[in-house]
């Protein structure tokens, strides 16, 4: 299948702004589906609210566009009920880690087989540029007109601590790596988190004088380094990308099968 076979063409061009990184995430995700040749009937994409959440409407799989922050909870219900389905949950930074932070850590703790994608553009785009839990100290936003004094989460550290069994980070510059990470995450059994640094030229870019979409993508190239590289030692300010956690632990729905087995013996 070509990637076009995975989209709902009638809704294109999509609603995202020119140069929005979310389209690049969609692009890489479709290629991952294509490479893995997964049947569209076996994919359920669950999203919440925000610019990022609109991604589900464009993909021709089973799509569940839910409420703000709760996509992982909905996905948990789908997965528990039909463990053979592939659950993909793309979320924005506010969706995943502000309003949805609790569901994020608990889904990770359970190690339920869901691929969670955090499309981190450091801003609330849909509502017009308010600071998110990933904007970071010193940034500007419509709700931080003087300076943002909130510190950002490190998604990788958070996911690690919460128990995710596959944790990775990439950027919209590194599209081939992005696709590879998506594939790896989908194939793995367990809770996978992929943070994608993605650009919002319209709000984060303008507010923080980060330049055009092109400039922002360039900055992802310039300000990141492969995990464990020498460059990180020389310039500690660089953001590492690549795979941070990759471990095999029992997956939640498989574990629940054991509960069923035990329960049936006690009938």
């Amino acid at each position: 299948m070509a990637i076009k076979d995975y989209i709902r063409e009638r809704f294109f061009p999509h609603i995202w702004c020119p140069g929005c990184g979310h389209g690049m995430v969609l692009n890489a995700l479709l290629r991952a589906f294509e490479d893995l040749a997964i049947s569209k009937n076996e994919i359920v994409m669950v999203s919440g609210i925000g610019c990022s959440a609109r991604i589900s409407g464009y993909v021709d799989v089973h799509t569940l566009h839910t409420i703000h922050g709760r996509a992982l909870a909905f996905a948990t219900g789908v997965k528990m009920s039909r463990p053979e389905l592939n659950l993909i949950v793309p979320m924005g930074d506010g969706d995943a880690l502000a309003i949805g932070g609790n569901h994020f850590i608990h889904a990770a703790r359970r190690n339920i087989d869901i691929t969670a994608i955090v499309m981190n553009n450091r801003i609330y785009g849909m509502t017009g540029g308010q600071y998110s839990p990933l904007s970071g100290y010193g940034t500007l936003a419509t709700t931080a007109p003087f300076i943002n004094i909130d510190h950002a989460f490190d998604v990788v550290e958070l996911a690690k601590a919460a128990g995710a069994t596959f944790v990775a980070r990439t950027t919209t510059y590194h599209v081939k790596q992005m696709s590879e990470l998506f594939k790896e995450a989908i194939l793995r059994e367990g809770f996978s988190v992929i943070e994608v640094l993605t650009q919002c030229p319209t709000y984060f870019g303008r507010k923080n004088k980060a330049g055009s979409a092109v400039d922002m993508v360039k900055s992802f190239k310039d300000n990141t380094t492969p995990v464990g590289s020498k460059a990180k030692l020389e310039s500690p300010g660089l953001i590492e990308r690549g795979i941070f956690v990759q471990k095999d632990l029992p997956e939640y729905t498989r574990e629940y099968d054991k509960v069923i087995e035990r329960a049936m013996k006690k009938r």
Partner: peptide, 17 residues
């Protein structure tokens, strides 16, 4: 689940299957 919000959401997801 981790709270009642999650519980309500999870049953909706399961019902869809």
């Amino acid at each position: 689940m981790e709270d009642e919000i999650g519980s309500m959401c999870a049953i909706i997801g399961a019902s869809l299957t």
